[in-house]
Amino acid sequence: MAWLSDRRAATLLVFAVIIAALPLVFPSGYYYRVAALVFVSGFAAIGLNVLMGQAGQVSLGHAGFFGIGGYAVAIGPAHLGIAPWAATPIGAVLSAALAYVVGRPILRLKGHYLAIATLGFGMLVALVITTESRWTGGPDGMPVAKLVLFGWRATGASTWYWISGAVLLIGAWIALNLAETPTGRAFRALHDSEVAARVAGIDVARVKLQAFVVAAVYASLAGSLLAMMNGFINPDQAGFLHSVELVTMVVLGGLGSVAGAIVGAAVLVTLPQLLTVFQEYENVMLGLIIIVSMIFMRDGVVPTAARLLARRGQP
């Protein structure tokens, strides 16, 4: 059982067990829905974490790719006669291509400038989706065709729970492995010091672009999944607030930690559901919890918890 001592395998195993066991305690379909939302958001957050946590580059326009993936599965079947399962990879390829083209110039920027450039990119995507109403249904959004695989229709919250759960595990597995490849190590070198990375022979521009494209593909796939799960999409999915939400998930959960991205998504998706008991103070409580956790857990939930537990383990 040597593979169990590997942290990657252990993390994956824990999530697989959680995903398999959760339905045992679910009293109704609503819980499947919330959990599936956590998985989809978690998937997008894992991707963004590759860019932000591993490679240390910020993106405030990531929902743009999320929206492209979502609208790919909406527009493909509705206007172009492409099956939803085929539209999903098309959306991902489109996002990757766009990330490549856009990323080349804007990833030369650093810090605030990069943040503003990605922000502008995200807004542009949302703007195009909102105005091209002939294709996208405009600001009120459009319906999305059901996913049909070999004559089997994917409907119902529990079906999507299993689909998104499986996709999340695959996404986590890839991201965990990526961190241990030469590319992943190059990401981390870049994160620590761009100059040192360049001195060590890393093609900084290329590596940044790789991280950006990977993150874009993750977001695009998550967008496609959510759109098919909801059977509906509107431009909010590509909007600035959604970008900020994704960034918050990554930062709250813990930069650089795959488990952190999933936990961050879990917190941000379930909290509004739990806080409904506070009625009109809901948003105040949500803000308060996020502020307090960022003050006391500056590295994010998962890294802080891991450190605390490790410290307690020592004599």
């Binding site: 959760l22 305690v25 819980y31 488990a259 879990a266 998962v302 891991a306 537990l309 383990g313």
Partner: peptide, 14 residues
């Protein structure tokens, strides 16, 4: 340890 913390978080949420 990291996994135990995760289980707690999820169990609490549920």
């Amino acid at each position: 340890p990291i996994s135990a913390a995760l289980c707690l978080v999820v169990a609490g949420a549920v």
